[in-house]
Amino acid sequence: MSKFFYGIEDLFVNYLFAPYDLFRFMESWWASNTVNWIFTIIGFVAMVYWMKELKIFNDNGEEDKSITSHTYI
């Protein structure tokens, strides 16, 4: 079972998080914060897009707003 967990460790440390090792060697506060700001901006744009789409469905009356619960409650 320990080989399974070592395999998960190897996947994350050596492959998935490998691009972040670049920032450790650069030791640049500005580069690290730039990456964080890029992710924040992408998340904000995605949230604005999603809210706009929800408003379109809400304005068209396509949203099911009936109050129902499960049959087992």
Rank of each mutant, 00 (worst) to 15 (best):
M1Q: 05
M1S: 01
M1N: 05
F4G: 08
F4N: 11
F5H: 06
F5L: 12
Y6G: 10
Y6D: 09
Y6S: 02
G7K: 04
G7N: 09
I8W: 15
E9Q: 11
D10F: 12
D10I: 08
D10T: 14
N14P: 06
Y15R: 04
F17I: 11
F17M: 02
F17C: 11
A18N: 08
A18L: 12
A18F: 06
P19Q: 06
Y20P: 03
Y20H: 05
Y20Q: 06
D21K: 10
L22N: 02
L22R: 12
F23H: 05
F23P: 00
F23R: 04
R24P: 01
R24Y: 05
R24A: 08
M26G: 10
M26R: 05
E27C: 02
E27Y: 09
E27A: 12
S28F: 02
W29E: 10
W29Q: 00
A31Y: 05
N33L: 09
T34R: 04
V35I: 14
W37E: 06
I38E: 00
I38Q: 01
I38P: 02
I38R: 03
F39R: 08
F39P: 00
T40Q: 00
T40L: 06
I41T: 10
I41S: 04
G43D: 08
F44L: 07
V45H: 03
V45R: 04
V45G: 00
M47S: 11
Y49L: 12
Y49K: 15
Y49F: 11
W50C: 05
K52L: 05
L54N: 08
I56M: 06
I56F: 15
I56D: 11
N58V: 15
D59Q: 13
D59G: 10
G61A: 13
E63Y: 01
E63L: 13
D64T: 07
K65E: 15
K65F: 09
K65V: 15
I67E: 09
T68D: 12
S69C: 04
S69N: 10
H70Y: 03
T71H: 10
T71G: 01
Y72K: 04
Y72V: 11
Y72S: 14
Y72W: 06
I73K: 02
